[in-house]
Design a protein around this nucleic acid. Sequence first.
DNA 1: CACTAAGTGAGAAAGATTCTCATATTGGGA
DNA 2: TCCCAATATGAGAATCTTTCTCACTTAGTG
Lengths: 129, 129
Amino acid sequence: MSAQRARIAEAMLGMPGAFTAEDLHRRVIEVTPGIGLATVYRALAAMQESGAIATVGDRHGSTLLARCERHDHHHHLVCTECGSVVGIDCPLGDAALISAERAGHLVTRHEITLYGLCAICRARADGDA
Amino acid sequence: MSAQRARIAEAMLGMPGAFTAEDLHRRVIEVTPGIGLATVYRALAAMQESGAIATVGDRHGSTLLARCERHDHHHHLVCTECGSVVGIDCPLGDAALISAERAGHLVTRHEITLYGLCAICRARADGDA
DNA sequence: CACTAAGTGAGAAAGATTCTCATATTGGGA
DNA sequence: TCCCAATATGAGAATCTTTCTCACTTAGTG
């Protein structure tokens, strides 16, 4: 692994939750100036391939990514307020499988993403109300 | 509703499944030349707002959309081969709700999308094998 | 140490989507 | 019917994200 990718991976550990390529690049160059945005995109593509990160939505046209502690199959719970992300298990419900079967569809992949407020932002929102 | 939007809505009825803004524009101008791509984007934005269409994925960076017969809450089953789309009911499984609850997360929105082969493409794939 | 494969930085390039602006159309009232 | 405000339109410019090019560097292997 190149020194640049190591710095990028390191910077990623410091990201609180969902982030864009540019968010991460901004953080990376604070510590290591000179690393190009293209390099960040290349590193992200490799990490996505390996399952280290996943797409969890988009923000104004930029792809939102999140680091996955787990590399096995799982889904995400995303806070729309602070961007924090939690990996969750949630197999497809029976209703989905029945619908697919009825349609004769062979399901090879599925995506489930939950959006809402995390415990912290929820408490803050209640406090404000 | 303007004449242009009527033509766009009409053309959309003829789209087989998932389509991009440009796919639809191409189809629209076959029948009614002169309608601009920006107008198609504007019409699509309005339809998405009203729930008449929904995002079902992306293809090489372009957003894939699909017409929804239903305007109530539902999800999609997308054929990765021919792009056909079927609306399905599939409430979140208990596992997902339990995970969210354990995290203290208030879920306000969720997306579930299933990808695979529709009955027709599946049969064709079997035939080829 | 040499060699090959992969990674890098900078900027160009590609693409999708949105915006601008001047013009046109719509629909509801007077 | 006519007027008016609000909204829609077309064309192309502009924006913005992401990928590609190219010349150069680095890493790892034998």
